[in-house]
């Protein structure tokens, strides 16, 4: 464990807690894409299949449980909570996210480190995570007015993967056989998808104006 990875995990945890806080306290999910949340629940479900088979550390198991429970409860809140669901704007959240699932799965069948069920599901979860933010970014472009919590949520989500890239660089130079091209490339693609959001987020923060994405 290195500082970049710990910071990355904490930033990722913070993004989920910010989202849960928003939904739980103001009982609203306005501006949040249910599709992205469903994709994230699928990412964790397919990535943490080894939750009970491979014990790595208490930290690892605890964090996996937190991510699983939080991602599925966010989906539940938006879909079934009697008050929250009313603020879900399904007419705007129209990204065909199922079209992301199949290509990621097919790609995982072809490009993976080992052709086993667990490894293919793990690779699938990596590819899916790289594109899972797309419905949310599309929704932000559409709704234009981005409330602070949603902006912070997307920012933290992007920041966590950027910190992971620093972690991969650190591990590459400190651990002799640490080479995972699939992880690195999909993580890089994921971070690049946030690039323009980061730009506008930083601009709005610098000029102290409300965050607006160009149409």
């Amino acid at each position: 464990m290195n500082i970049f990875r710990l910071a990355g995990d904490m930033t990722h945890l913070a993004s989920v807690l910010v989202l849960l806080l928003k939904i739980h306290t103001i009982k609203s999910c306005a501006g949040i894409s249910l599709k992205t949340q469903e994709l994230y629940a699928l990412v964790f479900a397919t990535r943490y299949l080894d939750l009970f088979t491979d014990y790595i550390s208490l930290y690892n198991t605890l964090m996996k449980l937190i991510f699983l429970v939080s991602s599925f409860s966010i989906v539940w809140y938006i879909r079934h909570h009697k008050i929250v669901r009313r603020s879900y704007d399904k007419d705007q959240d129209t990204f065909r996210h199922y079209f992301l699932v199949l290509p990621c799965f097919l790609l995982a069948l072809v490009i993976n480190e080992k052709f086993t069920v667990k490894e293919i599901m793990w690779t699938f979860s990596l590819y899916l995570e790289a594109v899972a933010i797309l419905p949310q970014l599309v929704l932000l472009q559409r709704t234009r007015n981005i409330d602070n919590l949603t902006g912070q949520y997307v920012f933290l989500l992007g920041a966590y993967r950027s910190l992971y890239i620093l972690n991969w660089i650190y591990r590459y130079f400190t651990e002799p056989h640490y080479v995972h091209w699939i992880t690195w490339i999909s993580g890089l693609v994921q971070t690049l998808l946030y690039a323009d959001f980061f730009y506008y987020y930083f601009q709005s923060w610098k000029n102290n104006v409300k965050l607006e994405l160009p149409a």
Partner: peptide
């Protein structure tokens, strides 16, 4: 499972 199989990152 040998070491290389297990993914230790979240």
């Amino acid at each position: 499972t040998d070491e290389s199989d297990v993914h230790d990152e979240l």
